[in-house]
Design a protein around this nucleic acid. Structure first.
Length: 400
DNA sequence: CGTCCACAGGAATGACGGGCGG
DNA sequence: CCGCCCGTCATTCCTGTGGACG
């Protein structure tokens, strides 16, 4: 029997997943535990749309995995259903601003959602804008625009499009627009023009993180339908919840852990998902995250990471920026690459800190100056594997 | 108690590449 | 389509800093 066939048989014979899709991040369940209040609040805020009144603009804050998108989509779905019943003209448009991260692309998305066709390049933004307004007038509806991950758009391209959208109602007679802005970044306010702040932030909602108990409820709810009975070992759900609670109560993380643990169990033909699978799922997820960050990092960032790694391996003490810089320089020398200035390296170290790969804190050592002490936050094994993917770095790594 | 270490990190400036308006 | 402008990455030059040491 071939290896591949073996895998297929294992999957087919597996009694783990009933419906794996229920654990995917974009799935919107029928029940959202511990978000009942948010659902009611958002629902009542948007309800005027059914009567043809423009709802207030809403701004939703919350860290990743706090249910912002799920709640918004859920309410949108329900409202659309009701609108059909009451024969009210309500139109929702959901745009993810991370995927569509230019004003142009956002506008194109909006046009398409109301059935206006525009080429995705070739015509000026102003023309797309004009067609959007025209299409909207024909539609004669209450339009509710959901801008998810708004921070990505605003940080890259400013708040101009928000300004236009909030002001669009002045040019509309048959239709009206209202906005729902969703952001992970609580500091987004600082990037916004005060005028926008006042009009977009007519109502603000903050989604608090889930605690471990709440996460457990969420997982239980999903697991009921996603897994076969008895497929989960005792404590699996609690462990997933606990691990995710540690990371600012991220429900998506909790679901990811559970799903990946299940996948691991399935792949090896296990009867049940065990605690061990969860731990391995955590490693897997961390590795994925780290590898994604590292892979897209410029060469010198990788070299710095490598330098930290080498220092950590060789010596006992925590590396300081000076030490890192000199090992980095010798690394560059060995690879025949021109090294950057220490000033720049200082910034790169800060960037790595921002990404969460390392923790750098400033330490005063009196007579012996002032430095940044750096601590690696990732398991060495992962980093080595990932950094080694860069062919040039591979040999350096082999040489200890 | 002053010095001075070993950097931190701000400001100004330049090279480069990519998107936008005309 | 082209030139322009803007953001990013990097360098240069610089001032600032907490505390161990003499």
């Amino acid at each position: 029997m071939s290896v591949l066939e073996d895998i297929f048989i294992k999957i087919m014979g597996s009694k783990i997943f009933k419906n794996r899709d229920l654990l995917k991040p974009d799935y919107i369940p029928e029940k959202l535990p511990h978000r009942e209040r948010e659902i009611i609040k958002l629902g009542s805020l948007l309800a005027p749309a059914l009567k043809g009144d423009r709802p207030n603009n809403v701004f939703i804050y919350g860290l990743t995995g706090t249910g912002k998108t799920a709640v918004t989509k859920y309410v949108a779905k329900k409202l659309e259903e009701s609108a059909k019943k009451f024969n009210a003209k309500v139109k929702f448009s959901y745009v993810n601003c991370r995927q569509n991260d230019t004003p142009y692309r956002v506008l194109v998305e909006l046009c398409e959602s109301i059935g206006v066709k525009v080429p995705f390049t070739g015509i000026p933004t102003a023309e797309v804008w004009r067609r959007f307004i025209k299409g909207l007038e024909v539609l004669s509806a209450q339009m509710i625009v959901i801008l998810d991950e708004l921070d990505c758009l605003v940080k890259k391209h400013g708040d101009d499009i928000l300004y236009r959208l909030t002001r669009a109602n002045e040019n509309l007679r048959e239709s009206q627009i209202s906005l729902i802005g969703i952001t992970n970044d609580l500091r987004l306010n600082d990037f916004l023009d005060p005028r926008i702040k006042s009009s977009l932030g007519e109502v603000e909602m903050v989604f608090p993180p889930y605690n471990a108990v709440q996460l457990e409820d969420i997982l239980l709810e999903r697991a009921k339908k996603a897994f076969y009975k008895e497929a989960l070992d005792e404590g699996v759900i609690s462990l997933c919840s606990a691990l995710a609670a540690r990371e600012h109560g991220d429900a998506r993380k909790a679901l990811d852990l559970l799903r990946v643990a299940g996948e691991l169990a399935e792949q090896e033909g296990a009867e049940k998902v065990t605690l061990n699978h969860v731990w391995r799922a955590r490693d897997e997820l961390e590795k994925d995250k780290v590898s994604e960050i590292v892979r897209t990092m410029p060469l010198h960032g990788k070299l710095i990471l490598l330098s930290i790694l080498k220092l950590k391996k060789r010596r006992e003490k925590l590396p300081t920026s000076g030490k890192i810089y000199s090992t980095y320089k010798s690394l560059c020398y060995a690879l025949d690459i021109a090294p950057l200035t220490s000033r720049r390296i200082s910034d790169i170290i800060n960037e790595l800190d921002m990404l969460g790969l390392i923790t750098a804190r400033i330490v005063n050592r009196g007579r012996y100056g002032r430095t940044k002490v750096v601590k690696l936050n990732v398991q060495h094994k992962f980093l080595e594997d990932i950094v080694a993917e860069e062919p040039r770095l591979k040999e350096v790594l082999r040489k200890r």
